[in-house]
């Protein structure tokens, strides 16, 4: 267990996803998910599904559930904007939808193009019927993902965990 300095929250997410028996990991890469993606890619039971746009992941995970498998969708906050109509699929059919969002456009963001979705991702998710948990502390991340996943798959329903930019690190260049 982690007794040292910084909490290894990507590892905690990985452990939570493994405990939830998540098999399909759908993603558009974000720098904040780098370590988690590497851990997932190294896991034999996990299928990595690289998307061209985040909304594909909602449809993918609906199909996975129809076939009896669980999945998770990883993205950065701007990806929420790409998903809006497809959230209707999860909502109308009550598919489980576990979404892990690394936040951009928060305190210290240098790229103004990230600000609109950084400010609005949480509210847009709520409007789309997805339950939202925001985490600002590293040691909260793993438990938040475990709890969100439990309810998402049990209800079933949509649940998102927004991971604060301060945990992800503030990028100083590129988008």
């Amino acid at each position: 267990m982690n007794s040292g300095a910084a909490q290894d929250w990507p590892r905690d997410i990985f452990d939570a996803l493994a405990a939830l028996d998540v098999r399909q990991v759908a993603y558009v890469p974000d720098a904040g998910h780098t370590e988690l993606l590497a851990r997932c890619a190294a896991a034999r039971a996990v299928r990595m599904v690289l998307l061209t746009t985040e909304e594909e992941g909602i449809a993918l995970l609906a199909g996975a559930w129809l076939g009896g498998e669980r999945g998770v969708l990883l993205m950065q906050s701007s990806g929420i904007g790409n998903c809006l109509n497809m959230f209707s699929l999860a909502r109308v059919c009550r598919f489980p939808l576990l979404v892990l969002v690394t936040m951009r456009g928060e305190a210290g963001e240098f790229n103004p193009w990230q600000l609109p979705m950084g400010r609005n991702a949480g509210e847009l998710l709520r409007l789309a019927g997805v339950r939202v948990t925001r985490v600002d502390e590293a040691e909260q991340v793993g438990p938040a993902v475990a709890a969100a996943g439990r309810t998402a798959f049990a209800e079933p329903a949509g649940a998102a965990v927004l991971i604060a930019q301060r945990l992800v690190g503030v990028k100083s260049f590129d988008g």
Binding site: R23, Q24, R47, V49, E55, E56, G57, I58, A59, L60, L61, A62, G63, A64, W65, L66, G67, G68, E69, G71, N85, M86, S88, L89, V92
Partner: peptide
């Protein structure tokens, strides 16, 4: 048969998730 009434643009991806989940079908 899972017939869609919406989710325009999502049919093939639903098929993918299903095909990956049930590789023998």
């Amino acid at each position: 048969t899972f017939p869609l009434w919406g989710a325009m643009g999502g049919a093939a991806m639903i098929g993918l998730g299903l095909a990956l989940a049930r590789p023998t079908r």
